[in-house]
Design a protein around this nucleic acid. Structure first.
Length: 182
DNA sequence: CCCGAGATTGACT
DNA sequence: GTCAATCTCGGGA
């Protein structure tokens, strides 16, 4: 059993998550895309200090930070880092377990698109604000790192207007399950 | 208090 | 390509 080091700096931890198996109540798959954020980063929700929404980012590492995007979609992060204010956004998953349940939650959809975005995968895995602050190492979550680090591609993060040049987006090379091409 | 922007998605021109 | 859906936060009046 390999223990997960949530104290790694966000960019390092984000890279280590590529290929990991993530499930929620048994539904999930292989993480194929992540993004790193930290407190010194103007693109991060933690940049301006604690608020009601981002409180989990200032709590213990290894917990979920789930926030609502544009008032509609949920997005799942894992709190990490040597200092407070760090987290890794889970942006895409390759569905492995509970695919039929995901289809019911998301409607008829090609398997490549079921979890190809941060809001999509939260819908497919039924992650909501109720999961905010919960430990990632306990049910309903299950998180298991890949035994061997796969080939990884990097690039600028998606959908932000500050810190755009920071290459803290990580993806599984050649994956058909990414939110976008690198 | 009011308003614009935002780590998104899906529907539409 | 454009745009609306709808919640939280920060900045300015």
């Amino acid at each position: 059993m390999t223990s997960i080091d949530f104290h790694l700096p966000p960019p390092v931890f984000a890279r280590s998550l590529i290929g990991a198996l993530l499930t929620v109540d048994g539904v999930g798959g292989r993480i194929v895309e992540t993004e790193a954020y930290d407190a010194g980063d103007p693109a991060s929700h933690s940049f301006r200090g604690p608020s009601r929404r981002n409180a989990a980012m200032f709590g213990p590492v290894g917990r979920a930070y789930v926030y609502r995007s544009h008032g509609l979609h949920w997005c799942l992060n894992i709190v990490c880092g040597a200092d407070v204010g760090g987290a890794v956004l889970i942006r895409a998953i390759q569905p492995m377990a509970g695919i039929e349940i995901m289809r019911e939650r998301r409607g008829m959809e090609a398997v490549e698109r079921l979890c190809s975005g941060p809001g999509k995968l939260c819908q497919a895995l039924a992650v909501t604000g109720a999961h905010d602050g919960l430990p990632m190492i306990l049910p309903p979550f299950s998180l298991t790192l890949a035994k061997v680090e796969p080939d990884i591609v990097t690039g600028p993060r998606i959908g932000i207007s500050k810190g755009v040049e920071t290459p803290w987006r990580f993806g599984l090379a050649g994956s058909a399950f990414l939110s976008r091409r690198f």
